Simulated scan of single mutants.
Amino acid sequence: MKRRQFLTFASAGLGSMLIAPRIVFANVESDRRFVFIIQRGAADGLNTIVPYADPAYGKLRGGLAIEDSIRLDGMFGLHPSLAGLGKLYQEQQALFVHGVASPYRERSHFDGQNVLESGGTSPYQRKDGWLNRLVGMLPQSQSEAIAFAPTIPLALRGDRTVASFAPSALPEAPDDLILRVGKLYEADEQLHSLWNTAMEARALGAPEEKRRDAASVGKTAASFLARPDGPRVAMIETSGWDTHSGQAGRLANQLRALDALIDALRTGLGDAWAQTTVLVATEFGRTAAANGTGGTDHGTASAALLAGGAVNGGRVMADWPGLATSALYEGRDLAPTLDLDALIAVTTAETFGLDPQRTMRTLFPDGRHSAALSGIVRN
C-alpha cells in the first residue's frame, strides 16, 4: 500500500471510530457559522414555547400544561428545561418563532422529514436537499462536506460531494502503530499536516456511551467549527421527539439535552459564537389537546428556535392564531401562520450575506420570500 493510500485509510478509519455520530459539516469560505439542528419525530412546540396567556391552552393540555414556564413576554413562556436558552434570550442571543410549518400538511414522519429536508412542497418531489444547495451558493474552502453518520441526511445530499464516516466495529489502532506512522510522515510537509489533522480528530474521541451524549456532540461540533480553517456549516440530527405517551418527563429530558447541546456549542465556539447562527426545527408539531395516554399526537404547526451571537434575539415572532376550537387547523392542531421554508431561507441568507430572494428560489424553488421574517440575523 502506498503512503498516500495508507494515510487516507488511516484518517478515515480513525475518524469513523472516534468522532461523534449524527453530525454533518460543510466547508465554505466565510467567517460566519450556520448550524441546523433537526428534531426528528415532531417536537411539541406548544410545550416548548408555551402560550401560557392563551385561555384555551390549559383546558386543552390538562395535566400536560406547563405552569412554571420561563416568562418571555405577555403571551409566551419557555419550557423550564431550556434554562440556558432562557439566558440567551435575556442576552438577546435567542429568538423563537411560533406557529411555523413547512408546506407539508399530513402526519407521516418520513414524508414530513422528506419535505423539510428536500425543500419541496410534497414528499419525494426533489432528490437533493436545501442545505446542499445552500453550500453550492457559497465559495468553497474544500471540496467535500463530511457527515459523521451512517448515511448522509437528505438535507445535505446533492451536487456537492459529502463523505460519510460511521462508527466502526474495527479495533482501535495500537499506540505503537500510531507513533511509527507519525514518525514516517514527519519529514513530509503535506502528509505531516494531514496526519496531524487525523490525530486531532482521534483526540476528540470518546467511549460509545459518551458519543451519544448531547453535550459531547455539541462540544465535538464546536471543536471543528471554531477552527480558523474549519467547516462553517453543520447539521446535527436529534431524535426521540415523538411523544405519544408519557410526554411530560420525556419532553423535559429531550429539551434538557437540546439545551445542553446548544450550551456546549456556545462554550466550545468561544469568540466564534459571535459569528454563529443555530436554527432548530422539526417536521411538524403535535395536537393542541392532550390524548388519553399522557401525550400528544401528530399535528401541524410547531415552534422553531434560533440561537447564536449573530442572532437578533430577545423576542418571539408569531402571528398567533389562538387555540380556540374555531381557530385550530382541522379542529385539532395549532394553525400554521408562518412559513418554515421562508424562515430557513431568510436566516441562511442573512447569515452569509446572500440575496434573500435568490436564496429562497435556490433553496425552496416553489416557495415565496417573506419580508416579514427579515432582521433575524445581525449584520
Rank of each mutant, 00 (worst) to 15 (best):
residue 318 A to D: 08
residue 138 L to K: 15
residue 257 A to K: 15
residue 47 N to Y: 00
residue 369 H to V: 08
residue 283 E to N: 03
residue 109 H to R: 03
residue 189 E to Y: 05
residue 169 A to H: 09
residue 213 D to A: 13
residue 112 G to H: 00
residue 108 S to A: 07
residue 231 P to H: 06
residue 155 A to V: 03
residue 52 Y to K: 14
residue 324 A to R: 15
residue 375 G to E: 01
residue 98 H to W: 06
residue 233 V to H: 09
residue 309 G to S: 09
residue 229 D to P: 12
residue 250 R to Q: 13
residue 23 I to H: 00
residue 288 A to F: 00
residue 96 F to W: 12
residue 97 V to L: 04
residue 235 M to P: 07
residue 337 T to A: 07
residue 252 A to D: 05
residue 371 A to E: 15
residue 157 R to I: 13
residue 120 G to C: 10
residue 219 K to V: 06
residue 274 A to L: 06
residue 47 N to G: 07
residue 183 K to V: 07
residue 90 Q to L: 03
residue 269 L to I: 01
residue 139 P to W: 02
residue 186 E to I: 12
residue 125 Q to F: 09
residue 277 T to A: 09
residue 345 A to L: 00
residue 49 I to E: 09
residue 295 G to E: 00
residue 297 D to Y: 11
residue 336 P to A: 02
residue 318 A to E: 03
residue 3 R to D: 05
residue 49 I to V: 14
residue 363 L to Y: 06
residue 110 F to V: 09
residue 229 D to C: 14
residue 365 P to E: 04
residue 259 D to H: 08
residue 367 G to T: 09
residue 108 S to N: 09
residue 154 L to G: 02
residue 71 R to S: 08
residue 267 T to M: 03
residue 165 F to G: 10
residue 330 E to G: 13
residue 180 R to C: 10
residue 190 Q to L: 12
residue 348 T to N: 14
residue 53 A to L: 05
residue 282 T to S: 15
residue 44 D to M: 11
residue 52 Y to Q: 13
residue 10 A to S: 15
residue 346 V to G: 08
residue 180 R to L: 13
residue 262 I to S: 13
residue 361 R to K: 07
residue 133 R to K: 10
